[in-house]
Amino acid sequence: MVRTLLVRGLLLGLLAGLIAGGFAFAFGEPRVDSAIALEEAAAATAHEEAPDHSHGEEAEVSRPAQKAGLFLATGLYGLAVGGIFALVYAGLRGRVGPRTDGPLALAAAGTAFVAVILVPFVKYPANPPAVGDPETINSRTLLYVVMILVGLAATAIAVATARRVTAGPWARWVATALAFLVPVVAAWALLPSINEVPDGFPATLLWEFRLASLGTQLVFWAAFGVLFGWVSDRAARATASAPVGAAPGG
């Protein structure tokens, strides 16, 4: 069963990654082009003011190649995430969440999106080219990973709380929400903020890029959750309707 789920996760993760790549190509790449144009204009102006000052090498990979590579990147991302999700899903079945496969897949995908994507994004949203100091990339990456760990830990605490509270559905939901939000909000408040947006950078472009970045992740997790849940439900119904003693898939 685990092998079947793993293959399912890999294939559907790849498909969801390509779907998300299409969204990023349509809505994210135009914003990247605009940000690169601003960066190049600023570099040209600086070069005119200081012609002897070097501003680095030209991009080794052309924009057409980068755009084509976008689908490779999102496809590989989908493969990796789909495989990990399938293994986690195999451990959750019958233990946590809804008892049927489809709703469990949707609940798990939604929870993963909130914990791994939305929680760190609220504190440290994505930035387009020309935004961010290259010298702080290591510290920014570390802080982003810390927020991912906080989201995962908060999710684990919330699940444990939901299983322990038996006073009623409303009390359980309130306790679960508080168990999740308290560590997340504390991390949002205590971790240092990062604001490296240069003066004069168009706020509309920054906002649109961040929406496209978050939208790409939302499309991926929504597509993957729906696909994985639908296929899992169909497989479960096929297994339940198979004659007793029949070989699976026979």
Rank of each mutant, 00 (worst) to 15 (best):
A246M: 05
L10H: 09
T166F: 07
R3D: 13
S213C: 05
A222I: 12
V165P: 01
G250N: 09
T166Y: 05
P125K: 08
V226S: 04
L205H: 06
P120K: 03
L118V: 09
V174K: 10
V146I: 14
A80M: 11
V81M: 12
A73S: 01
S232E: 04
A112R: 00
T45G: 15
L70K: 09
A160C: 07
A247Y: 09
R234Q: 08
P125I: 05
A171Q: 14
A222Y: 01
A223H: 06
T45A: 11
L10R: 08
V116F: 09
F25G: 12
A158C: 00
G215V: 03
H55Y: 13
G215C: 06
A44Y: 05
G229T: 07
F113A: 10
F25K: 13
W173E: 08
A203Q: 04
G13P: 00
T204H: 12
S213T: 14
L15S: 06
A115H: 02
S213W: 08
W173C: 01
R163M: 07
A158Y: 01
V116R: 04
V116I: 13
D199K: 05
F209H: 12
T216K: 06
A41I: 09
V226Y: 02
L106D: 01
L5R: 15
E196Q: 15
A153N: 05
V226A: 13
V185R: 00
T161I: 06
V2I: 10
T111W: 07
I148H: 11
G245I: 02
M147W: 09
G132W: 00
P128T: 11
S62P: 08
A171I: 09
V146M: 12
T45S: 14
R95F: 10
L11K: 04
I19H: 04
A156V: 10
H47A: 14
L11M: 10
P129W: 00
I148G: 11
Y124K: 11
G229C: 07
D52T: 14
L87M: 09
A50L: 08
P125F: 07
S193M: 15
